[in-house]
Amino acid sequence: MKNIIKDSQLIENYKQTLGGVFSFSELATLFADPHKTSLYRRISELEDEGVLQRFIKGFYVAPNFDIEILNQKICPQSYISFTTVLSENSIIGMKPGNQIDAVKLGKTRIHKSSQWTLRQFGVAEHLIFGFESLNGVNKAAPEKALLDTFYFHQHGVAFPFDVNSEINWKRIDAEIVQIYLQEYKNPKFVAFMNRLMSVNL
């Protein structure tokens, strides 16, 4: 009982700083417990009390955690794109809801909890560009989010909005799109985007 009160307070003290997201190594440092068995027991007690919830192996979240920070901790080299970025820049009207989509190097990974879905779509190394870090979270530029969306839409990925009718093309910078398209090695995709821009921009 003594540990659960102390540990709960530690989580509360660091929740805001860490966005409510705690890796196993961060919890080990926080609790200063050298014994793995004891550490797992303390984490389990926090889960029973609803102070923490295991999202995937090695990552735990507190209530009202920041899903964008969780994405960054799970895959530090990824960047958030698609619906989130398009919505934040008023390129589409809808909000992303309880789903975050990101781009990463390598294989696609999908992580789910009872409330959240985190999709990390894998690409080749030459397509990891066009993003910046904002408050520790990597986010695509609006034009890269647009290209990511159409690129994966052509590969059969579904999005919670109609890519053919719900995009506000007036908020897209055609010159930036053209610069980014130079990095794509798929001539069919480049031609497809050029046709779209000639009609909409």
Score class of each variant (00 low, 15 high):
E88G: 09
I69C: 02
Q99N: 09
F82P: 00
I74N: 01
T108C: 06
S81N: 14
V103K: 07
P96M: 00
K95A: 01
S90Q: 05
Q77W: 12
T108K: 06
G93E: 09
N89M: 01
G97M: 04
L105D: 00
D66N: 14
I74T: 01
I67K: 09
A102W: 09
Q77R: 15
F82E: 03
L70E: 03
S81W: 15
E68M: 08
V103Y: 04
I80W: 07
S81C: 14
I100Y: 10
I92W: 00
K104V: 07
T108W: 03
A102Q: 05
T84A: 08
N89T: 04
E68K: 15
T84Q: 12
G93W: 10
Y79P: 08
E88D: 08
F82K: 07
E68V: 03
K73G: 10
K73C: 06
N71F: 11
C75S: 13
V85Q: 07
G106T: 12
T83M: 10
K73V: 03
I91V: 13
C75D: 06
K95Q: 11
K95I: 09
E68P: 06
D66K: 06
C75G: 10
N98W: 14
S78G: 13
K73N: 05
V85E: 04
G93C: 00
A102I: 06
I80C: 06
M94W: 02
Q77M: 14
G106C: 12
K107G: 00
G106D: 10
E88K: 14
I100P: 08
Y79N: 06
I69Q: 10
K107H: 05
S81M: 11
I69P: 01
M94I: 02
E88M: 13
S90C: 02
I69G: 02
C75Q: 13
E68S: 12
T83V: 14
L86G: 04
S81E: 06
N89V: 02
D101Y: 06
I74F: 15
I100D: 01
Q77Y: 13
F82Y: 15
L70A: 09
S90I: 02
I100G: 03
L86Y: 13
K107Q: 07
G93K: 12
S87A: 15
D101E: 08
Q72P: 11
P76C: 14
